Amino acid sequence: MWVLLSSRLRTWLLLAIAVPAFRAALRRASASAARRDPASPTARRLSSLDSGLSRFDRRDRRRR
């Protein structure tokens, strides 16, 4: 079924659904890792990835 969708629709679905879902999962993993050990390399890396993805979030742009 994925093949039958147009490329613009697939791109829109990826940007509108998959990226925010990935960011939410990344934020949850980052918070969990930071609760266990905030100084660990994994917690720092997950936090930096989350902040990198937040650059592309429209809601965060409006707040700045």
Rank of each mutant, 00 (worst) to 15 (best):
S30T: 04
S51K: 13
R23V: 04
R36H: 06
F22R: 06
D60A: 14
F22Q: 08
V19L: 15
R45W: 05
S32K: 15
R44C: 05
D60F: 08
W12Y: 01
T42W: 02
R27G: 06
A25T: 08
R35D: 11
S6A: 11
L49S: 14
S6W: 07
D57Q: 13
A43N: 08
S6V: 05
R61I: 09
A29F: 04
L15A: 01
T42D: 11
I17W: 01
A21S: 08
P38I: 07
F56A: 12
R23D: 01
R10C: 00
R28S: 10
R27P: 00
L9V: 09
S48H: 13
R36L: 13
I17F: 01
A33H: 08
L46N: 14
S47Q: 14
A43T: 05
A29Y: 04
A25L: 10
V3E: 11
L53I: 08
R61T: 04
L26S: 04
L9N: 00
D50S: 15
S47V: 04
V3N: 11
R63F: 00
L9Y: 00
S30W: 01
D37I: 04
L15F: 00
R10A: 05
A24N: 02
R44Q: 15
W12K: 06
S30A: 15
A31R: 15
L5A: 14
R62F: 10
R35I: 01
M1L: 12
A21P: 01
F22T: 12
G52A: 13
L9W: 02
A43I: 03
L46G: 14
P41W: 05
R45V: 10
A34E: 09
R27E: 07
L4W: 10
L46D: 13
R55W: 08
R61M: 07
V3R: 06
D57H: 11
S32N: 10
L9D: 01
M1A: 14
A33V: 04
A34I: 03
L53M: 12
D37P: 00
A18V: 05
R27N: 09
R44V: 10
R10N: 01
R61E: 07
V19A: 09
